[in-house]
Design a protein around this nucleic acid. Structure first.
Lengths: 145, 145
DNA sequence: TAAAACTGTAATAAAATATATTACAATATA
DNA sequence: TATATTGTAATATATTTTATTACAGTTTTA
C-alpha cells in the first residue's frame, strides 16, 4: 500500500498522455497492461506513465494490480468516461496561462486585471469543457482501426 | 526600420500580457504609452513588452512611433478587436498540449493517436475560439473602473 | 520460499522553455 | 546635438517538464 501526493504543475502533454493510456486500456479489454508496455507505445519514460496512472486511479478511471503479472485496466466502462472528466483530472492551471505576475497595484488597470482575466478564463474554460463533455472515451477509442 | 522574426514557442502568459497591453492602450485613448510604462503596470521586463508589441503590431492591433516621446497606441477601434483574434495572434501550440513524442509506430494505437488527438484538439479549440469571438477588447476594457 | 516481474514513489539529473537582462543601433524630438 | 524612445539580438537566469536512477512493497510461480 502506498500513499502519494503528486504535484505536477502545468497543462503540458498530460492530457494527451492520459488519453493515450486510456485508449490502450480500452483496446486491451480484460487484459492488464504494464506501465512498461504503455510507455513503449507512447514512447515516454515508464515512471511518467506510472505517475499518470496514479492520477487516473485517484480519479477512478483505472485500477491497477501490483506484483508479478500486474498492470492496469479500466475501472469503469469507456462510455462513462467523458473527455471533459479526463481534462479536469489533469488540469492544474488556467487554460490561457495565469500570469504569476503581481501587476502594479497603483495602476488602475494592473490593480484589476487579474480579476477580469480570471472571469474571462472561467467562461472560456467552461466552453471548452462543454465541448469535451460531448465525447466519451468509447467514442474516441472507436476511431482507431 | 526594422525587420524581425519572433519565435516564441508556448502558450504561456502571452495572452494575459497582450490583453493587459491592449487594455492599457485603450484606456490611454490618444496618448502614446512607452514600453517602460506598460512594463511597469504588468510588472515584467520592458523587452518582453516590446516583443509582444511587435507581435500585436504585426497583427494590426497596435501601431508604434519611434524616437523621443514615442510609444504605442491602438491601430483600430477597441470594439473591432475580438478576443479570439488576440488569442490567435499569440497562439503557437495546440491548446491541450501537443505531444512532441513520436509514439511507437508498431503499436496500433500509437500509430494513429496523433491524428485523432489533432482532430479532437481542433474541435476543442474551435469551441474556445467561438466563445472568445463573442467578446471584444472594448467590452473587456469597459469592465475596469 | 526464493526468484522474478511487477507497481509505487522519492530523489535527482537533464532538457526544454520562459523570462530577464544587457547592449546597442536606429529614429524622432526638442 | 543631447535625450528619450523603439527594435532587436545575444546572453543569462529561472522555471518547468521530462527522464533517469534507485529501491521498497506486492504478487505470482517455479
Amino acid at each position: 500500500m502506498y500513499c502519494n501526493k503528486n504535484n505536477y504543475r502545468m497543462n503540458n502533454a498530460r492530457f494527451a498522455i492520459s488519453l493515450h493510456i486510456l485508449t490502450l486500456l480500452d483496446k486491451a479489454k480484460e487484459e492488464l497492461l504494464s506501465s512498461d508496455y504503455i510507455a513503449g507505445s507512447i514512447n515516454i519514460n515508464p515512471v511518467l506513465v506510472r505517475k499518470e496512472l496514479s492520477n487516473l486511479r485517484n480519479h477512478g478511471f483505472v485500477a491497477s494490480k501490483e506484483g508479478k503479472n500486474g498492470g492496469s485496466y479500466l475501472a469503469k466502462p469507456a462510455h462513462s468516461i467523458l473527455l471533459s472528466a479526463v481534462y479536469l483530472s489533469v488540469r492544474q492551471n488556467n487554460l490561457l496561462g495565469t500570469s504569476k505576475n503581481t501587476p502594479n497595484p497603483h495602476c488602475p488597470v494592473g490593480k484589476q486585471i487579474n480579476t477580469h482575466l480570471n472571469n474571462l478564463y472561467e467562461a472560456t474554460e467552461a466552453a471548452l469543457i462543454k465541448e469535451l463533455s460531448g465525447k466519451s472515451l468509447a467514442e474516441f477509442s472507436m476511431k482507431f482501426d
